[in-house]
Computed example of a mutant assay.
Amino acid sequence: MKKIYLSLALALLTSAGYAQTKIGVTGNNNPDVNANAVLELDATDKGLLLPRVELKETNNPAPLTAHVSGMTVYNTAKAGDVVPGFYYNDGTKWQQMVTTDNKAVKFFYMPTITFDTSTLGVVTEPKDLYAEYKKQFSMTSGNAVMSQGAPATIPHYPEATDLYYYVTDYDPAVFKDIVITADGKMTYEIIGNGTPTSIMNIVFVVK
């Protein structure tokens, strides 16, 4: 099978007046294009090789010059908040793709944060769980340690709405009326002073 470059594929599309096109093995006895496809590739021992690029971070379009909705690449770099793997662009940032054979639920526990329970009553300033999570992953506490060769920044989700927020358990003698908005801002009432055994268990789940 001859190597077919993208320029040739585009030329075929143009010459056909944007008609449907099928590229495959010579002699294939099923030349019809799928009715829902503008371009179909047909092979039993070949794959589609996407562009391999070095992304900088999810919010940075580089090496592209702009975010382009629907753009798909294979990232080879480990930098900023990206790791090697497939990414698509939603028009504002790069999103890592998860394959259907990934059976694991993507969740993680909230990094350590503190709650001031010295004053009873409804807390007037919501606790921004996403901001706390992002701050904890910034490695700027002054007490952060990383393994040799590790990136300076821990990869993290770029938007608060990339996550679901859960409180799976808490001390009912300390907290009451916990409510969490879609972007991770939590309101609550303090009804008792915390003790060394008081807990609040917060879990993030990737959408």
Rank of each mutant, 00 (worst) to 15 (best):
F137Y: 05
L49M: 10
N89L: 04
K78N: 14
P126W: 04
P61I: 05
I178A: 04
I191L: 07
Y133K: 00
T76A: 06
K2Q: 14
A152G: 10
Y88V: 13
D32E: 12
F86Y: 09
K106F: 07
L41Y: 15
H67D: 06
T161V: 09
N36M: 06
Y164F: 07
M71P: 04
M97P: 02
Q148H: 07
T124R: 04
D32P: 05
A9W: 07
T21E: 09
P51H: 00
N36A: 15
L10I: 14
D32R: 15
A77M: 07
A131V: 00
Y87K: 03
A9S: 07
N102V: 15
A35E: 08
K56L: 05
E189M: 03
G70F: 08
I190P: 06
F107Y: 14
H156T: 10
Q148G: 06
N34G: 13
T100I: 06
S138H: 03
L129I: 03
P51K: 02
P196C: 01
S118V: 03
G184H: 04
I199P: 00
F137E: 00
A11F: 13
I199K: 15
L129R: 02
M110A: 09
Y166W: 04
K78G: 08
Y74I: 11
T14W: 11
T197I: 06
L13K: 14
Q136L: 03
G142T: 03
V206Y: 08
M146T: 10
A43F: 14
T140S: 12
T76E: 10
N36S: 11
S147G: 13
D177C: 02
N201H: 10
L10C: 09
T26Y: 12
S15A: 11
D90R: 08
M97K: 02
S141A: 05
D183I: 01
G47F: 13
D32K: 13
I199R: 11
N59E: 10
A152L: 11
V83W: 04
V38Q: 12
Y164N: 12
G17F: 03
L12D: 09
A160R: 09
V73N: 08
G184L: 01
P172V: 01
Y74L: 07
E125N: 12
K185P: 01
Y170I: 00
Y88E: 09
A173H: 06
I23Q: 09
Y165C: 01
K135V: 00
A104R: 11
N102M: 12
Y87P: 05
L129K: 03
A62E: 14
K134Q: 12
V25W: 14
P158V: 06
M186T: 04
Y166R: 02
Y109K: 10
Q96M: 08
